[in-house]
Computed example of a mutant assay.
Amino acid sequence: MSFYYPYYLLSRDTSNFNSELCFPHLHNASCWKPKQSESGSILNYIVLSVISLLTVFLNLLVIISISHFKQLHTSTNLLLLSLAVSDFFVGLLMCFHIMFADGCWFLGDIVCLIYQYLAYIITSSSVGTMVLISVDRYVAICDPLLYSTKITLRRVRICIVLSWLYSSAFQSINLSDNLKQPGMFNSCVGEYCVVVVNFAEGIVDLVVTFLGPILIIVILYSRVFVVAVSQARAMRTHVAAITLGRPEKVKAEKSEVKAARTLGIVVVVFLLCSSPYYCFAVAAETNLVGASSAGIEIWFLYCNSTLNPVIYVFFYPWFRKTIKHIEMMQ
C-alpha cells in the first residue's frame, strides 16, 4: 500500500487528454498532454510566473535587509531570515512547477527528483522555523525577564542550523527508495515525477512535519495570546506609569506585544495556507479526491511564501525603512 504525498499528481484520467504526445518520437512510451486551451495555458504561465518572481523578489529584500543592517541582527529577525530563505527557494522551485504547466515534464527524472527532494526539505524547515518563532514569542511574552539569557543569538543560530539539518536527514530517510531509483514510479515518459512512500512512513511524515509542529504552535500561541491580552489591559490601566519615570518599560512591553501579534498573523496565514495541502495528502490516500484538485492545494502552500514578506511590509516599520535605504543605495 502506498501513501501518495505532496508535490505530485495522483493519477491520470485519459479522458482529459488530447492526441498529442509529450515525446512524439517515443510513441507508446510517452505520456499524453492534457486538454487545455491556448489562452488558458498562456494565462496560467503568466500568473504562475508573476507569483514566482514576486516571491523571489520580496523575500530577497527581506534577506538583504536583515543580513546587511547589523541593528536588525536580533534573535527574532534571525528566525525571520531563516523563513525568508525558505520562501525564497520556494519561489525558485516554482519555476520547475511552471515547466509542468502544459502537463509534461521535459527535464528528466534526476532533475525532477532534485526538485521534489528540495521541496520536501524546504517545507519541513519552514515548519521547523515556525515552531522556533512560536517558542521565541512564548519566552518573550510569558517569561520576559529571562528572554535575553534564554534566547541568545548563538542559540538561535544553532537551532536554525539544526532545523535545516534535521529536515534534510529526515527527508533523506523518508524518500530513500525514490532517491535510489529516480522515476521508478512513473508510468510513462514525460510524467510529472511521482514520489511514493509506504503508508507507515507517510503517517510518520505527516505527524512529524505537520500535526506535531502545529500542535506545539497552537499550544504556545494560545498561551502567548492570553498573556498578551492581559499585558495589553495592564498597560491601558497603567498609562500613568509613563509620567512616573518608566517610559522605557512600557514602550518595551508594547513592542513585544506588537511583535507577538505580527508573528501571530504570520503563523495563522501559514496554517491557513498549509492545512489544505496536508489534508489533501490524507484524503488522497482514501481516494476522496482526484488529481484535478492537487494543484490547488500546492499553490495555496506556495502563496504562503509570497504573503510572508507582504505581512512584514504592513506591520514592520524597520522593513519599510530598510527598503528605502536599499533604494537610495542604488
Score class of each variant (00 low, 15 high):
81 L>E: 03
81 L>W: 12
81 L>R: 00
81 L>P: 00
82 S>P: 07
82 S>Q: 11
83 L>K: 00
83 L>A: 03
83 L>Y: 09
85 V>Y: 11
85 V>H: 01
85 V>G: 00
86 S>A: 10
86 S>V: 07
86 S>R: 04
87 D>H: 12
87 D>Q: 09
88 F>W: 11
89 F>D: 08
89 F>Y: 13
89 F>G: 02
90 V>D: 09
91 G>M: 08
91 G>D: 10
91 G>H: 03
92 L>I: 14
92 L>H: 13
93 L>R: 03
94 M>R: 06
94 M>I: 02
94 M>W: 04
95 C>E: 14
95 C>R: 12
99 M>H: 09
99 M>T: 08
99 M>D: 10
99 M>F: 14
101 A>P: 13
101 A>G: 02
102 D>I: 02
102 D>A: 02
102 D>F: 11
103 G>A: 02
103 G>Y: 12
106 F>L: 11
107 L>W: 15
107 L>Y: 13
107 L>C: 05
108 G>P: 05
108 G>W: 13
110 I>L: 06
110 I>Y: 12
110 I>W: 07
110 I>F: 14
110 I>V: 12
113 L>D: 11
114 I>R: 02
115 Y>P: 02
116 Q>C: 10
117 Y>T: 12
117 Y>Q: 06
118 L>I: 15
118 L>P: 13
120 Y>V: 01
121 I>V: 15
122 I>Y: 09
123 T>A: 08
123 T>G: 14
123 T>N: 13
123 T>E: 14
124 S>P: 09
125 S>I: 13
125 S>R: 08
125 S>D: 15
125 S>C: 08
125 S>H: 08
